[in-house]
Design a protein around this nucleic acid. Structure first.
Length: 262
DNA sequence: ATGGTGGATTTTCCA
């Protein structure tokens, strides 16, 4: 038995974040790292610096927006990019791979902008497409499966610094939560952080760059590790790496790191 | 009700 740590981090531009990302990667050395908002086409992905630290890279990026990647130093097999449902545009928001016997899916869910906006409806439809994609490509009934990433949805008021002010708003609305919970029910996935930290609030993963949100700890928990039952049984811990949100030129998200015995 | 900051590519979009 050995420990396998899987981190998920919305880096908000990998190239802009390299001065923070590389030292973090060297210090933490998670076996698997899932990145969102890489904002870089595959040809310009900073592959060499990451490979020098012992990682293989699977990338699915585009110019300016979105982009996802999986880095692994325990193998990277069966890489599948995108939603794969034949629709014209999937916005480079999903990539999956088998890493050391764990089925890892890295997701960057649509933000949605504002309840009722066109992008909000697109977000709800995109959740349905993601759910179908997972039903086609992962075996949650039998395998260790981790579906991680920036879901842009809170589960409940424990995930919100001021629930009254956010009630019904984007990232907190009931249709978004129904879409996320529906995905989890259909795939039999568990919110691993909450399972390991029941009844605790004040555990956020995103703090808005505006309004001094970090300094005031005005955050939301919107980055999640969703785990199959087999993965949950192997899980030893999940934590949010708040240090990575502090200091110079941080991302607006903190990494979430899950550890399992494999 | 609005705008605040940050990143990429620009005088604006997206978050």
């Amino acid at each position: 038995m050995s420990e396998l740590r899987v981190a998920t981090w919305n880096v908000n531009s990998l190239r802009a974040r390299m001065p923070r990302f590389l030292p973090w990667l060297e210090a933490k050395r998670p076996e698997v790292v899932c990145l969102q908002e890489t904002k870089v086409v595959d040809e310009l992905f900073p592959r060499e610096e990451i490979e020098d630290l012992g990682y293989e890279c699977a990338v699915h990026g585009r110019k300016t927006y979105n982009g996802v990647a999986i880095l692994s130093r325990v193998g990277l097999e069966d890489v599948q990019k995108g939603l794969g449902d034949g629709e014209a545009e999937d916005e480079h928001r999903v990539i999956s791979a088998d890493c050391g016997g764990v089925q890892v899916v890295c997701c960057y869910v649509v933000n949605g902008q504002k309840v009722g906006a066109e992008r909000y409806d697109y977000k709800l439809r995109w959740f349905e497409r993601l759910t179908s994609r997972l039903e086609r490509t992962v075996d949650t009934a039998n395998e260790k499966v981790l579906v991680v990433g920036d879901y842009n949805v809170t589960f409940d008021e424990r995930d919100i610094w001021n629930p009254d002010q956010w009630r019904g708003k984007i990232l907190c609305s009931e249709p978004e939560r129904a879409a996320l919970n529906g995905l989890m029910q259909r795939l039999d996935l568990t919110d691993a952080f909450r399972a390991m930290h029941p009844d605790e609030g004040d555990h956020y993963t995103w703090w808005d760059f505006r309004t001094f949100a970090w300094k005031r700890n005005r955050g939301l928990r919107i980055d999640h590790v969703l785990a199959s039952q087999v993965a949950m049984q192997a899980m030893t811990g999940v934590h949010i790496d708040r240090e990575a949100r502090d200091g110079e030129k941080p991302s607006d998200h903190a990494p979430v790191i899950a550890a399992l015995e494999v």
